[in-house]
Amino acid sequence: MDSFSKVISIRWSDLDPNYHVRHSAYYDWGAQQRVEVLNNLGLSLKVMQENHFGPILFREECVFRKEIHMHDEITISLFIKSIAEDGSRWTMQHILTNQRGELCATITIDGAWIDTQKRKLANPTPQMVIETMKKFPQLA
């Protein structure tokens, strides 16, 4: 698998007063895609709740390259940029391209897993996490 990709539906509420996509919509798209991908790989919110863990972000950065407008067809692709051997910490990157294949933005996040009861960093059910995270395509 080359990447986890999907076409984004741009909503009226995603626009700002300049009639292009507002900056915070990019972060919303990234978060939604990550939750959907984890769910599809078996790390659903229910599994995380039952095992008392969840993802936590240390950094989230978007680099804007090209404006996105209401009728653009945008594809967002998700990759693992780096991952600790035990799967406990990771960097993911979203790449957003338009219908012409032009780079519109990249979103980079650094994250880890948190024990939701202890409220401390943890490596939950290591084998499950490692196996799931290995299914992500690596960014070259």
Rank of each mutant, 00 (worst) to 15 (best):
W113H: 01
C104I: 08
E85K: 11
G87V: 09
C104T: 07
L78E: 00
N98W: 14
L103R: 08
R100G: 00
I74Y: 11
K81C: 09
T75V: 10
S82Y: 08
I114Y: 05
T75S: 03
E85D: 11
T106Y: 01
T97R: 07
T75L: 00
I83Y: 03
L103P: 00
E85H: 13
D110N: 14
D72I: 08
T106Q: 14
M92P: 14
E67V: 02
D110A: 12
E67P: 05
D72W: 13
T97Q: 01
Q93V: 15
I83D: 02
G101D: 05
A105L: 09
G101E: 04
C62H: 04
I107G: 01
K81S: 09
I83T: 06
K81V: 15
G111S: 03
G101W: 13
A84K: 06
I68D: 04
T108Y: 10
C62L: 06
G111I: 06
D115W: 11
G111T: 09
G111V: 06
W113T: 01
S82L: 08
I76T: 09
Q93S: 04
S88T: 05
I109T: 13
D115R: 03
E67W: 02
T75Y: 00
L103W: 02
D86N: 15
I76P: 03
G101T: 12
A84F: 06
A112P: 03
G101Q: 05
N98I: 11
L103Q: 08
A84I: 00
H94W: 12
D115S: 10
R100E: 07
M92A: 14
W90N: 06
H94A: 11
V63R: 11
T97A: 00
H94R: 02
M70N: 11
I76V: 11
Q99C: 06
H71C: 08
M92I: 15
I76D: 02
A105T: 10
I76R: 00
R89V: 13
E85C: 04
R65I: 00
E67I: 03
T108K: 13
E102V: 00
Q99S: 14
I114A: 06
I80W: 03
L103N: 01
G111W: 05
C104V: 07
S82M: 12
I80R: 12
H69M: 09
M92T: 13
M92Y: 13
Q93D: 02
L78N: 08
K66A: 13
F64E: 04
T91K: 12
F64S: 01
L103T: 05
E85Q: 14
A84T: 08
I95K: 15
W90I: 07
C62I: 10
I74W: 04
E85W: 10
T75I: 07
D72M: 07
L103G: 02
W90S: 12
W113D: 02
E67F: 02
L96Y: 14
L78K: 04
H71E: 04
R100T: 04
